[in-house]
Design a binder for these strands. Structure first.
Lengths: 186, 186
DNA sequence: CTCCTTAGTCATCGGTTGATGACTAAGGAG
DNA sequence: CTCCTTAGTCATCAACCGATGACTAAGGAG
């Protein structure tokens, strides 16, 4: 860490957000105390409430990540789109969140109803919608959600479960198998 | 609920386990208090420690479910095995756990390291091993874990995320699509 | 050098948590 | 009817929780 410049509101605020992201990502909402977060930054816990109002508002601001609109851009074929998403969601190193995608982080705090709502909103509005356009037939949405389930499941297996083969497999090997599964759907 | 027969140790103990399962399943480990569980049964919270020693031990005994060895039995073909697992893990109503499979319940408490260890053990030893036997090639385990990821992802989407299409789809429709994805792997 | 804004601290509150040990009373055995 | 085991209760602890308001001192403006 860099020597903390004293009395720098913006820097301290941002450092608190970083620490909150890592703590919440690793231990979930209920498992993280305000004093822990403040302690990581080397600051009194009262400052958290001064800057963010409450623990809940801090959490909301911490996990609020602008999910890159990897979907909307060019009308890429489905397998290419899936591969890009596999890269961003599962294999990208989200260093802000301690190495995991914010969606997987939210999963770890899914005991709270507010977190589940946010999770559903981001997955459905952000990701699934773009899948459904790539399928025909009346059950296009079901197949789109199956693709989403596969990607989400891979993320869960890698980060939460820590399964051996998926954890050790490289991006290219995984992408290839995923492509076979997805093309079988259309 | 039935009028509680007073002073029945076995019955009270089992009622506590049931209440614990439901509470832990719905609100996670950290979101559940010992007083909540005891309150559901209509009993003092001190009794929990008398019977189980600690909250952690109560949790361990509550989520410890003897996962049915759906895998080992007959050497069924892969798609049939997957269908059976889809039924048991995702579509079966695990009433003891508030309607969800214990694995998904554990996911909701995955902030604790001990829970993650238990989760990994049950998934890897209990489920994945039987998949790998159905594949050939050097990356059989990777493909086996991809099947596991798909099933787990479907469960997460249905219960935690609450996605619309997968939540509304019947077992048969889902099983059919899953079979297509799985056969594409072998 | 002084003043004044404000980043950060300190003491503390009320509530809840997991956990303990002394106690009460239910109810079968004799 | 009496006694004695024991299921269940009560009071209480120490630690921690999120949160609040009064305070201190850093440091640029003048």
């Amino acid at each position: 860490m860099t020597q903390p410049r004293r009395r720098d509101k913006a820097a301290t605020r941002s450092a608190l957000l970083d620490a909150a992201r890592r703590r919440f990502a690793q231990h979930g909402y209920d498992g993280t105390g305000v004093r822990d977060i403040a302690g990581d930054v080397g600051v009194d816990s009262a400052l958290v409430f001064r800057y963010f109002g409450s623990k809940e508002q801090l959490y909301a601001q911490a996990v609020h990540a602008e999910i890159p609109a990897v979907a909307g851009e060019a009308p890429r074929p489905l397998t290419e789109l899936t591969g890009a998403l596999l890269h961003d969601v599962v294999f990208a190193d989200w260093e802000q969140f301690g190495g995991e995608h914010p969606l997987l982080v939210m999963l770890r705090s899914s005991g709270r109803a507010a977190v589940r709502d946010h999770l559903r909103e981001q997955i459905c509005e952000g990701y699934l919608r773009s899948f459904a356009d790539r399928f025909d037939g009346d059950d296009a949405e079901l197949r789109a959600e199956l693709v989403g389930a596969l990607l989400l499941g891979i993320g869960v297996m890698r980060s939460l479960v820590g399964s051996p083969a998926l954890g050790a497999a490289g991006f290219e090997a995984t992408r290839e198998q995923v492509a076979r599964m997805v093309t079988a759907l259309s």
